[in-house]
């Protein structure tokens, strides 16, 4: 079961600032989701291999060749905010200078 500390940790990792009301609400929501998923654990899967992949394909490579994208300018247009050719985002520096 989720505790409030888990939600706080998730918020920190996701770089989200949550109000205490939001935290309380999210704790309930995440709890409900986990309870639902928890049902899966009732099945005995000890003889089932983990399904990391379903199509059985392996060894897909490309040669080390340049294939310049024609979409560069359109990709940059998708950015919510720009400064010249840079994408501008809210300041992500923290107290560590990282």
């Amino acid at each position: 079961m989720t505790t409030k500390a888990n939600v706080e940790n998730l918020a920190t990792l996701s770089r989200l600032l949550l109000s205490s009301e939001e935290k309380a609400a999210l704790t309930q929501e995440v709890d409900a989701i986990l309870t639902y998923v928890e049902k899966l654990n009732e099945l005995d899967t000890s003889n089932v291999d983990p399904a990391r992949q379903v199509h059985g394909v392996k060894n897909v490579y490309r040669k080390d060749r340049l294939k310049a994208s024609q979409l560069r300018d359109r990709l940059l247009e998708l950015a919510p905010d720009r400064e010249g050719d840079f994408i501008r985002v809210p300041l992500v520096i923290n107290q560590d200078g990282e």
């Binding site: 400064e83 840079f86 994408i87 501008r88 809210p90 992500v92 520096i93």
Partner: peptide, 13 residues
């Protein structure tokens, strides 16, 4: 990313 504390933004490349 290049950070600017003054302008409160980070620039991504």
């Amino acid at each position: 990313s290049v950070h600017s504390a003054e302008r409160q933004c980070s620039l991504l490349d």
